[in-house]
Amino acid sequence: MNIFRLAGDMTHLMSILVLLLKIYATKSCSGISLKTQELYAVVFLARYLDLLTDFFSLYNTVMKVVFIVSSLAIVWCMRYHRAVRRTYDRELDTFRHYFLILGSFVLALIFHEKFTVREIFWAFSIYLEAVAILPQLVLLQRSGNVDNLTGQYVFFLGAYRGFYILNWIYRYFTEAHFGRWIASISGLVQTALYADFFYYYFLSWKNNAKLKLPA
């Protein structure tokens, strides 16, 4: 565990806490894409199959369980909670996310480390995570105005990706045999998707203005 990875995990955790806080405190999920949340739930379930077979550390196990449970709880709230579901921007959240699942799975069948169920699900989860933010970014772009908590949620998610890239650079120079190609290329793609959002986030922060994305 290095400082970049810890910072990445913590900002990832922060993003989830900010999202839970927004939903709990405001009883609203406006501006949040259910499609993206469903994709994250699939990502965590597919990747953390190893919870059943491997043990790395208590930290690793606890974080995995937290990510799985929180992502399922968020999806459940947005779909079934009586007050929260009414605030869902259904008509703006029309990204066809099934294509992302299908595409990621096909990619995993082609590019994987070993042709085993676990390796293919692992690669699938990496590819899917790289593009899972797309429905969220499209929704934000369409709604134009972004409330503070939603902006911070996406900011922390982007920060998490940035820290993970620093972590891979660090591991590349400090560890032998660090197998990284699938994760690194997907991670770079994922981080690049946030670039546009970050530009407008910092602009609004610099000008002390409300975050607005151009149409």
Binding site: R5, D9, H12, D50, F56, N60, M63, K64, F67, W122, Y164, N167, W168, R171, E175, A176, H177, F178, G179, R180, I182, A183, S184
Partner: peptide
């Protein structure tokens, strides 16, 4: 020891 792997990440 096992070679280090990106799979020990979250």
């Amino acid at each position: 020891a096992e070679p280090s792997s990106v799979k020990d990440e979250l």
